[in-house]
């Protein structure tokens, strides 16, 4: 129990290093074909080469632009619908059932429909990503709008707050934690779906396509690298959102 933090951190490196060693031994002795598992140094070399050549930045940019568009559209729509349903029970009854029914369909199931309607276009992909971001954002915003306790509503009544000020001072702040985690979930969903879009819509450009191309040509080193980069970006996005949440929700922390 009294193991200090440094030791814990070092322990975390044991398994990855062991895996690396096993990987190296296996490939060095050619127990597995290099096609399936390239040498660690090959992967490292390819990694450097990719960044030096610079094409990876084009793909990176492509994916990030796409995800940004879809994400923004999705969370805006989700925020609006979530707030509307959270504030008005009539609107909830109007939109709720349809929303919940549509939500039951696995998101990838919409791909054939989107392709049929919009073709293999940029728009189809952005709608697809937006839809993925839309669900969690709507749900979280809706939940958040209902977080305000009855007790606080009474405070608002005592101070004779009107509707807009009630919304601004009471409802939205109390919904903020929920909304922010909605944004975070939507973001990681969108990031997954941009990769999905690039794979399933089978169009050129983006990290997903780069990965798929590498798969087709059985360039295992590039597959590894793209997984690494995609994971890393997902991690960074999540991390940035967490920091933002902590800053905006400072009021929750007690001494």
């Amino acid at each position: 129990m009294d193991v200090n933090k440094e030791v814990l951190k070092l322990r975390g490196l044991v398994v990855p290093l062991a895996l690396l060693a096993v990987w190296w031994i296996i490939t060095k002795n050619e127990w597995v074909s290099a096609v399936f598992l390239p040498l660690p140094e090959t992967v490292a070399a390819t990694f450097v080469k990719l960044f030096l050549k610079g094409k990876i930045f084009v793909d990176l940019n492509e994916s990030i632009t796409k995800v940004a568009k879809g994400f923004l559209v999705g969370i805006t729509a989700g925020f609006l619908l979530g707030t509307a349903m959270g504030l008005s029970s009539t609107l909830e009854k109007l939109f709720g059932p349809l929303f919940n029914a549509v939500r039951q369909v696995p998101i990838l199931g919409w791909i054939p429909v989107l392709i049929l309607i919009f073709g293999l276009t940029e728009l189809a992909k952005i709608i697809f990503i937006a839809l993925g971001a839309f669900y969690p954002m709507t749900l979280n915003t809706f939940d958040g709008c209902r977080q305000l306790k009855k007790e606080y509503l009474e405070v608002a009544r005592v101070f004779e707050f009107n509707k807009p000020r009630l919304l601004w001072r009471f409802i939205l702040p109390s919904a903020l934690p929920s909304i922010l985690s909605g944004i975070r979930v939507s973001m990681s969903e969108a990031w997954m779906l941009v990769i999905g879009a690039e794979i399933f819509f089978k169009t050129r450009g983006g990290l997903g396509d780069m990965m798929w191309e590498a798969k087709t040509r059985v360039q295992m080193d590039i597959v590894f690298i793209t997984i690494l980069i995609i994971g890393l970006i997902g991690f960074i996005l999540n991390y940035v959102m967490k920091i933002l949440e902590n800053r905006l929700l400072r009021w929750r922390i007690s001494n």
Partner: peptide, 21 residues
Amino acid sequence: SYVGPIFNALRQVPVLAWIPL
């Protein structure tokens, strides 16, 4: 302490990105 970090690292990869591998 041994497997947590690698678990968390692998968890960051969006599931669809595993398909090609």
